Structures are given as C-alpha cells and as structure tokens.
Amino acid sequence: MPIRVDADARRRHIVDSALRLVVAGGVAAATFRRVAAEARLNIGSVRHYFTDHEALVVAVATEVGDRMGRRLTRHPAPAAGNRPAAKRHLLRVLEELVPLDDERHREAVILVEVIAAARINPAFEPVVRQMGADLRRVLVDTLTATGTPAPEHQAAHLAALISGLSLDAVTPHGAIDGATIRAVLEQHVATL
C-alpha cells in the first residue's frame, strides 16, 4: 500500500525548514540541497513543491507575512470614537510588527534578508512590494481609527520607523533591544 503524504503539511514542513536556514544564513543558504537535508527529505521532494530557489524564498516570505497577519487579527479594533483605546490598539499593532521576542526576531531577519535580496533579484520584488502595501494598509486603517490627521503620511512615517527599528534590532547596525523598541513606539504613539 502506498504511503499517503499530506501535501499541505509537507509543503509547510519544507517552508519551515527553509525559514530556519534563511534565519541562520540568509537567502542564499536556503538551497534545495540544504532545505532537503534540514527537512530530512530527498531533494526531489523539495523540487516537487517548488520550481526553483526563488519560489521557495517567496513562500518563506509569504509565510512570515501570513504569521504576522494572524497575530494582528488577535487585536480587534476598538469602537469608533474612543481615541485613547484606538491609540492603545495602534501600539499593540505596532508591537506585533517589530522584533520583540524570538519569533518576531526571526521574522524580522527573514524580511530584512528578502527585502535586501529583492534589490538585485527581481523574482522577489512582487512579494516585497505586496508586504509593503499590506503594511501601509494596516497602518492607514489603524491610524484612521485613532483620528490621526493625514493617516497615509503618518503610515509612511510609521512604516519607516518599524523598518529602522527592525533593522537595528537584527543587525549590528544598531543592536537595540526590545525595551528600547517599546519605548520608541510608545513615545511616538503618544505624539499622535
């Protein structure tokens, strides 16, 4: 009797294996051979689910975005007109998007790696653009609920702040910690 494989579970297993490799060694580390070894599969199993390295990396970036999206849904927007609650909600949303724990740190590493890789590899550009658009949409919606004037402008400002904090947290560039990230976000939200 042939062995039945849950295709979705197998694909997730491969993506999780690639995710660990990208965190450890960057986008270039997620070769089919290394992913297969990490997943304890043969290379043909990886090739069955992904046509090339770029498709695998896009799947990893998409998974990170999906994880962030699932966390954001745990924070429903408060009732309209309650500005203090809306600002607290904004802070919770922002905290889900920056590296404040191990999971979010790994996600930030992957995003930094894929965004940097998109500069020279056009295969990553669509997923990076989509991630940026999704981030701006979430921020505009959340800022609108706070009654912040010019929410599109403020969303661009917050997106840059999130990117800078994340970059500084996952690289030697700034080497900042979670307490500093929280303090910066709290201070910024207080000014809105």
Rank of each mutant, 00 (worst) to 15 (best):
P2W: 05
D6C: 00
D8P: 02
A9I: 07
R11H: 09
R12A: 15
I14N: 03
V15P: 07
A18M: 07
A18W: 04
A18P: 06
V22Q: 10
V22A: 06
G25M: 13
G26E: 14
G26K: 10
A29Y: 01
T31G: 09
F32E: 14
A36Y: 00
A39G: 03
L41R: 10
I43M: 07
I43G: 04
S45C: 08
H48W: 03
Y49L: 10
Y49V: 04
F50W: 01
T51F: 10
E54K: 00
A55W: 03
L56P: 08
V57Q: 11
V57N: 01
V60D: 13
T62H: 02
T62R: 14
E63C: 03
V64Q: 07
G65V: 04
G65Q: 15
G65K: 07
R67S: 12
M68N: 12
R70Y: 01
L72V: 07
L72R: 12
T73M: 05
P76Q: 10
A79H: 03
G81S: 11
N82E: 15
P84L: 09
A85S: 14
A85T: 02
A86E: 14
R88P: 02
L90F: 02
V93T: 11
E96A: 06
D101L: 08
E103V: 14
E103F: 00
R104F: 02
R104K: 03
R106D: 15
E107G: 10
V109G: 06
V109W: 02
I115W: 00
A117K: 01
R119I: 07
R119P: 00
P126K: 00
P126L: 00
V127A: 11
V127Y: 01
R129N: 10
Q130G: 05
G132W: 06
L139V: 04
V140I: 15
V140M: 13
V140P: 14
T142N: 09
T142D: 14
L143V: 11
L143R: 06
T144L: 05
G147H: 08
G147N: 12
T148M: 08
A150N: 15
E152R: 10
E152S: 11
H153R: 09
A155I: 12
A155E: 13
A156Q: 11
L158G: 04
I162Y: 00
L165P: 11
L165D: 12
L165G: 06
S166N: 10
L167P: 02
T171N: 11
P172E: 15
P172W: 03
P172Y: 08
H173E: 13
A175C: 12
I176A: 12
I176F: 02
I176M: 07
G178D: 09
R182E: 15
L185M: 07
E186V: 04
L192V: 02
